[in-house]
Structures are given as C-alpha cells and as structure tokens.
Write a protein that binds this DNA or RNA. Structure first.
Lengths: 148, 148
DNA sequence: CTAGGTAGTTGGTAGTACGGACTAAAATAG
DNA sequence: CTATTTTAGTCCGTACTACCAACTACCTAG
C-alpha cells in the first residue's frame, strides 16, 4: 500500500497539503502572538520567556536551552526584561556561578493577561470548529507533539 | 449547553488545551523552519519571501503587506537577497515609481530544495499519524484557516 | 499644470542573535 | 589538597530585523 505506483500519488499530495496546512497555521498563530506581544512591547522571545517561567525557575543556561538560543543572547534578553520589572535574577543557592531567573509578580500578572489574550485572539479561529472537532484537533496535535 | 455551570468547565479546559496544542505545534514548526533556513543562511522572513515569490511577482509594498512588515524593512531584505542572487528587482512596466520583485532561477532552485527539506523535516512528526488521521488533521486545520 | 498622494529609499534607533574572549566558581585529576 | 580543566555567565563586536520619520521620484485629480 505504500509501494510506488499511481495509487501512491494521493499519499504524496496529502503529505503536501498537510505540511502546507501546518505551516500556514503556524504562521497565522505566530503573527497573532507577535501582535499581542507587540501590544505590550514584548518580542516573541520575551513572550516565550514569560510563558516558560510562569511555573518554573531556571538557570540562564537552562532557559537558553528551552529557547534554543545561545547563552550570550540570554544576558541582554534578561537584562531588558529585568529592567522592566518582569523578571528577577536570583543567586543560585547551590552553585555560585549560576544565576536563577524567575518571573516577578508584575511579570506573572502580565503573563496571565497575555495568556487570556491569546485565548481570546485565537477563539475566532478555533470557534469555527464544533466542540467535537476541537477535541479531535487537539488530540491529533497532541499525539503528533508527544509521540515522536 | 453553553450556559454557566459546572457542566461548562470541560469546555473551558478543552479550549485551553487546544490553544496550548496549537501554540506548541506552531513553535515546533517555526523552530524547524528556522533551523532549515539557518542551514542556508536564511532568516524566517527571507524563507517566507522565497515561498511567497515562488509563483508570484510582487511590488515591494505588496510584498510588505503579505509579510505584515513596513515597506522600509523590505528595502534591506530585498537588498541582501538580491546581492545573494536569490531575487531580482525589475522595473514595473506601468508604474514608474514601483519596483517589482521576482525570484531568480537560483532563488527558485533554493526554494524548491527548502520546500522538500521542510517536508522531510516535518515527516517524523506527521508520520506518527495514520493516513486517515493526517487527512482529518489537514481538513480541520484548513477549515480553521479558511472559514473565518 | 499644479497639489496631493503613492512607491521606494535612506538614516537613525532599538532589539535579536551569534561567536569569541574573559572572569569567577565548580569539578576533577594527580 | 593543590593544579588543571570545565562550566556559568557576562561583555564586546558584528550582522540582521524592524520601525519611524524624512526625502525623492513619479503618478493622478482637480
């Protein structure tokens, strides 16, 4: 059923179409996040930092790993967010070299607000689906994300 | 069925979970595109430019609109891509102010290659789904994208 | 033909991101 | 227990992204 031949073409076409849909959805979603972030003078990366630190406290390097960025990039990123009172640098208790970063009360408040905004902004899109479809879509996405 | 009450909580939870899945999927997809672009010294934006101009020829401003960027941003973007031989600036035949941008043969070749790369890179994710699931996912995404 | 609008570029500024050099503090070797 | 190596974070220099405001060239209406 996966051998070559004319019966296979639909599979290739399907693959193309799915990739297109995924990429397009991602660009739409990112544009949305970008816009919401910009409303609060936050870049996409800063948005992610807030989201990540919402329920965690990480060392600079760990944060860099989460984001897939170089540690030297983190310095400026955290600097700016700290100056704005969104994050706090805390001495790591067990490692004198390390610096923990945690979200500040103000940052947490902003993160909560952004999270609500994201949901509100995506809802015009998600609510075109019935509840059953939403559930189905969520499960399909999750199984893609968590299985590989 | 959408009135307030304890029976509603699952709907809210479902909404949260779907938004999370969408955002996560988008970040994974973007990270992938970013990585593929970086392998050819292309930013995400340059990648998009190549994708957009694959089958179109647009004025600078139109391109800026497609990307949601300021026209002044386009100048540098197109400059660099042109210098690398990926794009070409062409005088617009009917409007002396306007500049058309089109993909060059080299750019088209790179775009084709990237498109194939994207599909290959996403396949570990998409192929965790059965073909029926892929089809279902694609249809759900498309109906979300095209209906609103 | 002139007044006003549009297309694109330029210059200035801020943010993002990287690599390499550097300091301080572990961790490991001997 | 010192000597060396590794690790964590910062700092510097560079390139790119993106915006705004100012400007030039050109088009369009009155």
């Amino acid at each position: 059923m996966t051998a070559s031949g004319s019966a296979d073409q639909p599979a290739v076409v399907e693959q193309h179409a799915l990739v297109d849909a995924l990429v397009q959805t991602s660009f739409v979603t990112m544009a949305l996040l970008n816009r919401l972030g910009a409303e609060h003078d936050l870049s996409l990366t800063q948005l992610r930092v807030l989201a990540i630190l919402r329920d965690r406290r990480l060392k600079m390097t760990e944060l860099a790993d989460y984001l897939g960025l170089d540690k030297s990039t983190m310095t400026g990123l955290v600097d700016r967010a700290e100056k704005r009172g969104l994050l706090e640098r805390v001495r790591n208790p067990t490692d004198g070299r390390a610096v923990d970063v945690r979200i500040s009360p103000g940052g947490a408040k902003l993160a909560d607000r952004l999270y609500a905004d994201v949901e509100r902004s995506l809802s015009p899109m998600t609510s075109t689906l019935t509840r059953a479809e939403q559930r189905r879509l969520r499960m399909l996405l999750e199984s893609m994300l968590h299985r590989p």
